[in-house]
Amino acid sequence: MTEGYNFAYLDEQTKRMIRRALLKAVAIPGHQVPFGSREMPLPYGWGTGGIQVTASILGTNDVLKVIDQGADDTTNAVSIRRFFARTADVATTTHTADATVIQTRHRIPEKTLRDNQIIVYQVPQPEPLYRLESSRVETRRMHGLADYGLMHVKLYEDVARFGQISISYDYPVLVNQRYLMSPSPIPAFDNPKMDRMPALQLFGAGREKRIYAIPPWTAVRSLDFDDHPFRAINASEPCGLCGATDSYLDEVVIDDRGGRLFVCSDTDHCAERRAAGHIGKDGFAEAAE
């Protein structure tokens, strides 16, 4: 562990303050709790909110996984993982099943999370109404009174204009039948995973200084109309590498002749399937381990 830093970088005073905010957030599912966000050795947009939450809940026995867009090996994921390996000396993993804490940007792992795991979301904009109502005072009042007609107006406008609800990321949800919540910019495909998830879900927005949470097994409903029900949209073909038909796929350009490939965005999920012998049409057999 790097000398000169407190465990997990943040001082104990700050961690206690963040834990108090977390406890309040868990007690009021989906409600945004303000917290005194600290300067972190990373710029906003790099997950400073998520990092502060992770720093406040990590213990020495935790095993940390960090993903960015589903992948463990992107710059952002690698640097956050390395940050905690150095400042907290915790074990890290890329295997969803082995992690006790998963910090994420833009995805929920495909593997169903368990009740002894915590998922920490990095949140750029915690206010689901901010595009529709610029006044913070007004959005706070709307949350206070559960006055969410405006969000439905946005959905109405979508259906009127496009024939369907056209939100593919950050699809608004109602938590515990009470608070309207931004799930962060995860694909709408991941929304159903939030509903009655056994794992604790924590959300940190560093620049906006807000924390919110979904306790285990809480009802999370994606807003919709009776005659235009929520649908998790995905690519229509299976993963080219592992053949999965039920995972979220990224479209990857593979050459300069417009060739493209659909592959699992969750790299751990894809690798695990390939290791188990699943092969997609563009894949190749893995060497037996």
Binding site: Y148, G149, L150, H152, V153, Y156, F225, D226
Partner: peptide, 15 residues
């Protein structure tokens, strides 16, 4: 959308 808002605020959920 303007006319429908009050209906939706009151709980109407059938587009």
């Amino acid at each position: 959308g303007n006319v429908g808002e009050r209906l939706m605020a009151r709980g109407a959920r059938h587009y």
